[in-house]
Computed example of a mutant assay.
Amino acid sequence: MSQTVDRALSILPLLAEGPADLGQVADRLGVHKSTALRLLRTLLEHGLVYRQSDQRYRLGARLFALAQEAMESLDIREIAHPHLVRLNQQCGHTVHLAVHEEDEVLYIDKVDSRYPVRMYSRIGRPVAVTVAAVAKVLLADLPEPERRAVAEKLDYPPYTPRSTPHASAFLDELAAVREQGWAADLGGHEESVNCVAAPVRGADGRVAAAMSVSAPNVVVTAEELLTLLPLVRSTANAISGEYSGRTPVEKATA
């Protein structure tokens, strides 16, 4: 680890003890005030420290947000997995759990279909954001300015004739998903594969993850898959209830 990074990281446990001024930080690190100020400015730019009106520094809100995000990413898969397995047992199709991290939507869990035809997807791999149902659920929850910014910087590959063609159409889809509370990908990524997804919400009501059921046309038609939507949504509600610490809204039923 470089000396600069080591010194910068050493500031965080110091401020965890309480606010400190520039001189205290410099003394604790054993460096000149100009060096300490440079390190603090870097941490300040990233929201990891905050300068109070009395010119003392404390830990920044971004640090707590990162810690919370990390905790949620670690916990949600463990909480959701039994529900995903139960849903898979009830419908027989592939079940996914996905989260939004930085600029990607990633699968963090998967329960394979019991049918011979399997979905080519892997845990840890990003999804096709402009067409995937889980991505639509996750991005639809973003505040409008963020949704627009994300939509405008994306590319829109024509995977199939049903793929989302451009940012305006994508924003319309996200608005509809936000309103109806679920999303679908009916042949948008692969013509022969359909998917329906629902949100998993945290204690703050925000979407923390998205879960979905996917199946190829040779196993079930798009219309038949859509009939599973109440089961998908009730499973997502059950996960949300457990994840947020509330009583589940409703239990999944066959």
Rank of each mutant, 00 (worst) to 15 (best):
E101N: 06
V127G: 03
A128Y: 06
V105M: 08
V95E: 07
D141I: 04
R118H: 14
R122H: 13
T130E: 15
R162M: 14
Y107T: 09
R122M: 11
V111L: 07
V127N: 02
D109E: 08
Y120V: 11
S113M: 06
L138I: 07
Y120A: 14
D141H: 08
E152G: 00
S168Y: 00
A140P: 01
L138S: 09
L139P: 00
K110Q: 11
A133Q: 02
D103S: 11
R147M: 09
L154C: 05
Y115W: 15
R162D: 13
V129I: 15
I123Q: 14
T94F: 00
Y115V: 09
V105W: 02
E104S: 14
S113G: 08
I108P: 03
V177H: 03
R122T: 13
P143V: 06
V134W: 00
P143I: 08
V117Q: 09
L171R: 04
L174T: 06
F170D: 01
T160C: 05
R114G: 09
K110T: 07
H100W: 13
V137L: 02
D172G: 06
P165D: 07
R114E: 08
H96S: 14
D109H: 07
H96T: 15
T130D: 10
S163V: 00
K136H: 07
L139N: 05
A149T: 06
Y115D: 10
V131S: 04
S113L: 06
S121C: 12
L106C: 03
A133Y: 04
D103R: 13
A132C: 09
E101M: 04
Y120K: 11
R148L: 04
E173N: 11
R147W: 00
R162Q: 14
K136Q: 12
D112E: 15
L142R: 03
H100I: 00
D103T: 11
A176S: 13
L171D: 03
L142G: 01
E144N: 04
G124N: 12
L154N: 05
T160F: 02
L106P: 00
E144S: 08
P116C: 12
R162H: 14
K110Y: 01
D172S: 11
L142K: 01
R118I: 12
V129A: 09
G124R: 14
L174P: 03
D141N: 11
R178H: 14
R118L: 15
